[in-house]
Write a protein that binds this DNA or RNA. Structure first.
Length: 451
RNA sequence: GGAUAGGUGGCAGAGUGGUUAUGCGUGGGACUGCAGAUCCCAUCUAUUAGGGUUCGAAUCCCUACCUAUCCUCCA
């Protein structure tokens, strides 16, 4: 299996540190608002990635942090005149709800930042002890001049970085690129530390959490590309300064943005579509189809027109899936992996979900053409099942034994045979109101559940 | 100013040296009580512009123009 590693800038063959086992860490959300579709793109991609690794036989420990303390959470609390932890609790719950909608069920453990305060303080102590951090007037800072590899991940040369391009340079820092590990503060919320009351900087939570669960070095670290600099750069600096090892993560995997109205979908600019709003109209599997029907390393365009067009493609595949699943269940005789060789080849080549979906469409055409041999049909059923084990874009196997529906269908067909169409149409209309769609093809009537 | 991706048919978006990507849309046909779905055909010899390498370039090289993103809020 290969994928694009940000650190080397190359598509590299993936070899985990321990054979057959993968330690994966992905930066989770800051819980200060509902997540939007751009966030979902990254989370869906890594969910698919973890599931694909498992489908290929790896044992995967997938760790995700939750940033439940941050200036944005504090600001929101102030605006709403509520306790900061009420805000983070509420939006963490919202995130978990959206995760269920989107079938993000591959995470082994969610780690909330504020529960790892001793681990963070321990890391800062060790950094100071080794001379990589210093105490200043308003906080503790990491001294980037002591860590020569700072900038290597993002391929930035420090002397070329425009200091203060977006944020004021603080005079309390030794170098403009130095980042804060601990911010002094007497205002709630604060924690005690050897250097005084305050709260942690943004970057330290991830290394504290990953060191706790995965150790100082692990296999894959993921996130959106906006985190490459400075966040992931800072994580590398922190952990490697402590461990002295050549890597924090062996592979760095970054997902590209979702663009909307000519720019990145982003809360700060207000051009967002919330997952919750989309989920009112479309099932989570369909939203996943839209997000995965793209190359993770390329920007993806969102607008209503493109999304609706994508939904048409999803419906087509969903029908093909139902057609296959209604007739074939996977028995002990299946050889899913062998039948899915083509898909595995596509996926092993830089996680090409888009080509995989294109392949499913080609199969769909063959299925709908309707002249398949039973063995070919079984093979295609295996392929769909295998692809769905990591894409999670199909749901709702046809319940052909649901006797109530079946008997209504046969009643309706009696009416149809006698030409009593007003009666037959009423049955169809009533079932549709109940969310059940009937479709006639010749003498056969099939049905499926919408939503 | 520095860094990273890109610019492909009506739309979205693959393809990294020679073959129909794929989906959506549109038009026509088949099937059908109607609806829906599906199939077939067409749109479809598309590759930002200008040079170069090559028997052959969307693909490699150079130049120009354009777009998105990052340079301490961010998935």
């Amino acid at each position: 299996m290969k994928f694009k590693d940000t650190l080397s800038g190359e598509i590299r063959e993936f070899v985990p540190v321990s054979e057959g086992r993968v330690k994966l860490f992905v930066c989770g959300p800051t819980v200060y608002d509902h997540i939007q579709l751009g966030n979902a793109r990254t989370f869906v991609f890594f969910d698919m990635f973890a599931k694909y690794l498992r489908a290929r036989g790896y044992e995967v420990f997938y760790l995700q942090n939750i940033t439940d303390l941050d200036d944005k959470i504090l600001n929101r609390a102030r605006e709403e005149n509520r306790k900061w932890s009420d805000i983070s609790d509420r939006y963490l719950e919202s995130y978990l709800e959206d995760s269920r909608t989107l079938h993000l069920d591959s995470v082994s453990h969610h780690a909330r930042a504020t529960r790892y305060m001793p681990e963070m303080i321990s890391q800062i102590e060790r950094l100071i002890g080794k001379g990589y951090a210093y105490v200043s007037s308003d906080g503790v800072y990491f001294d980037t001049s002591k860590f020569p590899d700072y900038g290597k991940l993002s391929k930035q040369k420090l002397d070329q970085v425009e200091a203060g391009a977006r944020v004021e340079v603080r005079i309390s820092k030794r170098n403009p690129q130095d980042f804060v590990l601990w911010k002094f503060s007497d205002e709630e919320p604060f924690w005690d530390s050897p250097w005084g009351k305050g709260r942690p900087g943004w970057h330290i939570e991830d290394t504290a959490i990953t060191e706790h669960y995965l150790g100082p070095e692990y296999d894959v670290h993921g996130g959106g590309t906006d985190l490459v600099f400075p966040h992931h750069e800072a994580e590398i600096a922190q952990m490697r300064a402590i461990s002295g090892l050549p890597f924090l993560s062996r592979y760095w995997l970054h997902g590209a943005f979702l663009n909307f109205r000519g720019e990145k979908m982003s809360k700060s600019t207000g051009n967002i579509v919330r997952v919750k709003d989309l989920a009112m109209e479309y099932p989570g599997t369909a939203i996943r189809y839209f997000l995965l029907n793209s190359k993770y390393s390329s920007e993806l365009l969102y607008n209503e027109e493109v999304f609706r067009a994508s939904m048409e493609g999803w419906k087509r595949l969903q029908r093909a899936f139902l057609a296959l699943m209604s007739e074939h269940s996977c028995s002990e005789a299946c050889n899913i992996e062998k039948d899915s060789k083509d898909i595995i080849n596509l996926m092993d080549e830089d996680l090409d979900t888009r080509e995989t979906i294109a392949k499913l469409h080609v199969i769909a055409t063959e299925i709908f053409r309707g002249d398949l041999t039973p063995s070919k049909k079984r093979k295609y059923a295996h392929i769909y099942r295998f692809a769905n084990s990591f894409l999670s874009i199909f749901a709702g196997e046809q319940r052909s034994l649901d006797k109530v529906v079946e008997s209504l269908i046969s009643l309706r067909n009696e009416f149809r045979e006698r030409g009593m169409y007003p009666e037959s149409d009423r049955i169809r209309a009533r079932l549709r109101e109940a969310g059940i769609n009937l479709e006639d093809s010749g003498k056969e009537t099939t049905w499926n559940v919408t939503g």
